[in-house]
């Protein structure tokens, strides 16, 4: 028993020490959270009030964070197709082409070469994301960068900040097109700009989430040629189905405010006459289950069908040649 007590003491002491050592970081996160929704991109640590002792501690902590990040290295590249034969001359030609692009409906908006960044939650990581990337890279002169993060979205930006990350990715890859899919993890309580929490059941939740979406669209629609916003496929899950319908409505209505944002109605595509379909045929006629057991993620087959649909929409805008 003495041995167990000793171990218990060690565990509790270690937990307390680790918690205390991390405490300023937790405080910093709580303080930042309220302002994140509206000012994600411009916010820097220096913007925070710095007239208190806690602020000093936070600065030290920030310094420590930077040291750890330095040790861990920068965000690694997950996936990128290189245009292997692209020369600097070709790059110039490409830039000229972009200048000449005609954004008239009915004509192709983009000519090759073209850069695409795909980002979002686990839907981008498994099933849908890899299939779309696969179909895109089959095309000549298309470079694709795909980054997905489990359990993330536009709600819990305290957990993972897609506003900041999108900005980094745009700076890093200068894409022509952004394909995004968020929301599977967003159906939970949300904080507004003042730090007030709203439950999902509160009608004001929609307003706050709408502002998050609008903020994202406003920030990034000016930085790329076009954004394709992928809506959620139909779901029978009593948990997710109603949330997805609510969020899709928001994505659709907000995207209408921008000329260069297109909402992709995946709900409709993955249903038959508006009704849930367990199995669907892909382009080659193969029929298979489209949803994984959680009724949120799609199977490989479901991902292929979603990707084929996006390719069909992209074909209206891109002259693949």
């Amino acid at each position: 028993m003495e041995h167990d007590n000793k171990i218990l003491l060690v565990i509790i002491s270690a937990l307390v020490i680790v918690f205390v050592a991390n405490f300023p970081a937790s405080i910093k996160e709580i303080r930042e959270l309220a302002s994140k929704a509206e000012e994600r991109i411009s916010l820097t640590q220096e913007n925070l009030e710095d007239n208190s002792f806690s602020s000093f501690i936070m600065k030290l902590k920030n310094l420590e964070d930077r040291i750890w990040n330095k040790i861990k290295g920068v965000e690694p590249i997950i996936s990128e197709k290189k245009i292997a034969k692209e020369t600097s001359n070709e790059k110039e030609v490409k830039e000229e082409k972009v200048e000449e692009e005609k954004e008239v409906k009915g004509e192709k908006i983009f000519s090759l070469p073209i850069k695409i960044v795909m980002l979002g939650d686990s839907m981008i990581m498994v099933g849908f994301g890899p299939n779309l990337e696969e179909q895109l890279i089959e095309k000549e002169q298309v470079s694709v960068f795909r980054e997905g993060k489990f359990s993330t979205g536009l709600n819990r930006i305290d957990y993972f900040d897609w506003y900041a990350r999108t900005d980094e990715l745009i700076q890093e890859h200068t894409p022509d097109i952004l394909i995004v899919m968020f929301g599977a993890n967003d159906g939970q309580g949300i904080l507004d700009e003042n730090g007030t929490a709203f439950k999902l059941s509160d009608p004001k939740w929609d307003e706050v989430y709408q502002r998050r979406v609008l903020n994202y669209m406003t920030t990034f629609s000016s930085k790329v040629k076009k954004i394709y916003w992928v809506g959620h496929p139909i779901s029978l899950s009593p948990d997710f189905g109603p949330k997805f319908a609510r969020m899709n409505k928001i994505y659709q209505s907000e995207s209408l405010k921008f000329q260069n944002i297109e909402y992709i109605d995946m709900w409709k595509r993955m249903s038959v006459d508006g009704k849930y379909a367990s199995a669907l045929p892909s382009k080659d006629g193969t029929v298979g289950l489209v949803k994984q057991s959680d009724d949120v993620h799609v199977t490989e087959h479901g991902g292929k069908i979603m990707a084929e649909y996006i390719m069909q929409i992209l074909s209206e805008d891109i002259d693949w040649k």
Binding site: L236, S237, V272, Y276, A277, S278, A279, L280, P281, T286, V287, G288, L289, K291, Q292, S293, D294, D295, T299, H301
Partner: peptide, 23 residues
Amino acid sequence: VFTTNILLQAEILKATTFIPTIL
């Protein structure tokens, strides 16, 4: 999932059949 897909491809199960998701 594996078995259901085989049954679907063999047309033993119809695409329109409702198939529940199994966790």
